[in-house]
Design a binder for these strands. Structure first.
Lengths: 123, 123
DNA sequence: TATGTGTATTAATATTCTTAATACACTTAT
DNA sequence: ATAAGTGTATTAAGAATATTAATACACATA
């Protein structure tokens, strides 16, 4: 399913969460399908079940997974996690914009920035 | 000059740097004037000189101070640190905007967001 | 040359983070 | 009922990181 990179100096759970998130975002995991159980993935990757659990918890926190008690963890429908993801990013963007205003950067410059970033390859 | 809050759980140097930055940004410290020496401020606040040094290093890194070898640290001219500050914030804003694009948030929504944030009290 | 300045280096200590061990709670198939 | 599968909570050990302090250095200037 995924492969851990032991040269990567980030913690295992973070690396796992990131790889799984990318897998889900790129469509490598079908929505509504069951994820491997915490224990089976732990065995497969030779880590402690709690490490997998922590990665799953992170993904659930971000809306990519949901859990049914006693049955397992499942991939969320795309529309849902897409909305969650956009909400998170939207909030960060708003904070960054408020800071820009506070620092005296004029609105026109931001608008020009949007044109540039969105125009770079196909608006 | 400043007062440390011992209920604050952030490290001392960070707290000091933040308070001094606010003082400079709000005009409480005249540009081009000398800062208290590392040792004198350390005595005044009952901390190790290195702790003050670290706060000063942070402020210098962010462009609020500059140092003349053997003579002391001085407050940067406002135009300079303002430019540095805007550059930092501008870069963060660009990163946030690129993320927004990648998440599929349309440019129009960002532009509407700018209108709202900049319009809230006097554009 | 003595005193005042910032800085580098090193070490002690404190704090936080990561991972593991273990036990619990719930669901379902036998 | 019970066994085997699921996720989760709690606790602790260990590692890693961050913070602060001790000390010595380098430069400027009176």
């Amino acid at each position: 399913m995924i492969l851990l990179d032991y040269r990567d100096k980030r913690p295992l759970y973070e690396q796992m969460a990131e790889k799984l998130e990318r897998l889900i975002v790129n469509g490598g995991l079908e929505p509504l399908t069951r994820m491997p159980s915490v224990r089976s993935l732990a065995v497969e990757l030779s880590v402690n079940p709690n490490t997998v659990q922590r990665a799953y918890a992170q993904l659930e926190q971000d809306g990519y997974l949901y859990t049914v008690s006693g049955r397992g963890s499942f991939v969320t429908a795309r529309e849902e996690w897409q909305e969650n993801r956009q909400n998170r990013i939207w909030q960060e963007w708003q904070a960054a914009t408020a800071q820009a205003r506070e620092a005296g950067i004029p609105a026109e410059r931001l608008i020009a920035g949007i044109r540039q970033i969105y125009g770079e390859d196909g608006q």
